[in-house]
Simulated scan of single mutants.
Amino acid sequence: MRNRIRLVAEELLVKHGYRGVSFRQISEILNTTRANLHYHFGSKDGLIEEVLEDYANRTLDRYRDIWTDATMTLREKVDAIVRMSRERYQHYNPNSDKGEPWSLMIRLRSDSDALTPKMRAKLQDVTREFETLVRVGVRGAVQSGELVADAPQEQLVIQLVNIIHYAGSVTRDHGNFGRLADLWEATLSTIERAYGTK
């Protein structure tokens, strides 16, 4: 039951944000009582903190696998990130390409004023970890000779990380996933032309 509650809460949070989710909605979807939700999680904040922790850890595990893989080129890493993002996007936009929200962390950042200190701290931790992982990937591209030795690594990290952080806004503002894929491609092509060794 705990897992079912978390899954329903995650779906609702991505679609409606922090303010748009209630124990009443979750209990109706699961055909259970609000008391049951309180029994398992104590409060709405307790539930969301647990959902965010789980979602963030799953996302970081996938990013870690990609950005620290020494056998992949920078382009292959970006392609893997685009595929992962498209997979999540299509989950929340199954029958159309309307730019509906698809990332829990991006969605919760837009509600940051309503979040608990623990939730805000988790989002900040994830942001720092994303930067660390992308830094590893860029450094690896330089060390392997894919990028020139004097490539401005920190500037490249900033560019790539910001696409990750604002991916949900890009798809929402443009109403489709294609714009995000184009942004990744434009950024990577520019990096390769400016600092690539081939």
Score class of each variant (00 low, 15 high):
residue 1 M to N: 13
residue 1 M to L: 09
residue 1 M to G: 10
residue 2 R to V: 02
residue 3 N to G: 04
residue 3 N to H: 02
residue 4 R to I: 04
residue 5 I to Y: 08
residue 7 L to D: 14
residue 7 L to H: 12
residue 7 L to R: 14
residue 8 V to M: 07
residue 8 V to N: 14
residue 8 V to Y: 09
residue 11 E to P: 07
residue 13 L to A: 06
residue 13 L to R: 03
residue 13 L to W: 01
residue 18 Y to M: 09
residue 19 R to Q: 14
residue 20 G to Y: 03
residue 24 R to A: 10
residue 26 I to N: 12
residue 29 I to T: 14
residue 30 L to T: 07
residue 31 N to Q: 13
residue 36 N to E: 08
residue 37 L to A: 04
residue 39 Y to E: 10
residue 39 Y to C: 12
residue 39 Y to S: 08
residue 39 Y to F: 15
residue 40 H to W: 11
residue 41 F to S: 05
residue 41 F to Q: 02
residue 41 F to R: 00
residue 44 K to M: 04
residue 47 L to R: 03
residue 48 I to V: 03
residue 50 E to S: 05
residue 51 V to K: 06
residue 53 E to F: 13
residue 53 E to P: 11
residue 55 Y to I: 00
residue 56 A to S: 09
residue 57 N to P: 00
residue 61 D to C: 04
residue 62 R to V: 01
residue 66 I to E: 06
residue 67 W to K: 12
residue 68 T to P: 11
residue 69 D to A: 06
residue 70 A to L: 08
residue 70 A to C: 04
residue 71 T to V: 06
residue 72 M to G: 01
residue 72 M to Q: 12
residue 73 T to R: 01
residue 73 T to M: 03
residue 73 T to K: 00
residue 74 L to H: 07
residue 74 L to Y: 12
residue 75 R to N: 03
residue 76 E to G: 01
residue 77 K to C: 04
residue 77 K to F: 06
residue 80 A to Q: 02
residue 81 I to Q: 12
residue 81 I to D: 06
residue 82 V to M: 07
residue 82 V to R: 11
residue 83 R to I: 04
residue 83 R to A: 07
residue 85 S to G: 07
residue 86 R to W: 13
residue 87 E to H: 13
residue 89 Y to C: 10
residue 89 Y to N: 11
residue 93 N to Q: 09
residue 93 N to Y: 09
residue 95 N to C: 10
residue 98 K to V: 08
residue 99 G to A: 13
residue 100 E to W: 09
residue 101 P to W: 02
residue 102 W to Q: 10
residue 102 W to G: 13
residue 103 S to V: 04
residue 103 S to D: 12
residue 104 L to P: 03
residue 104 L to D: 00
residue 105 M to P: 09
residue 105 M to L: 14
residue 105 M to W: 10
residue 105 M to R: 08
residue 106 I to A: 09
residue 109 R to Y: 14
residue 110 S to M: 09
residue 111 D to N: 15
residue 112 S to E: 15
residue 113 D to I: 15
residue 115 L to Y: 06
residue 117 P to Q: 11
residue 117 P to I: 03
residue 120 R to S: 05
residue 121 A to I: 01
residue 122 K to D: 00
residue 123 L to T: 02
residue 123 L to Y: 11
residue 123 L to D: 05
residue 123 L to V: 03
residue 123 L to A: 06
residue 125 D to H: 00
residue 130 F to A: 04
residue 131 E to W: 13
residue 133 L to W: 05
residue 140 G to E: 10
residue 142 V to W: 00
residue 142 V to L: 00
residue 144 S to M: 01
residue 145 G to D: 02
residue 146 E to G: 01
residue 146 E to V: 01
residue 149 A to N: 00
residue 151 A to V: 06
residue 152 P to K: 07
residue 153 Q to N: 05
residue 155 Q to G: 11
residue 157 V to T: 13
residue 158 I to V: 15
residue 160 L to F: 14
residue 162 N to P: 01
residue 164 I to F: 09
residue 165 H to F: 15
residue 166 Y to C: 10
residue 166 Y to S: 15
residue 168 G to N: 12
residue 171 T to P: 11
residue 172 R to D: 02
residue 176 N to F: 08
residue 177 F to S: 15
residue 177 F to W: 08
residue 179 R to D: 13
residue 180 L to G: 14
residue 180 L to T: 15
residue 183 L to D: 07
residue 184 W to A: 15
residue 187 T to H: 12
residue 189 S to W: 13
residue 190 T to R: 14
residue 192 E to Q: 15
residue 194 A to D: 06
residue 194 A to Y: 09
residue 195 Y to H: 13
residue 196 G to D: 00
residue 197 T to E: 03
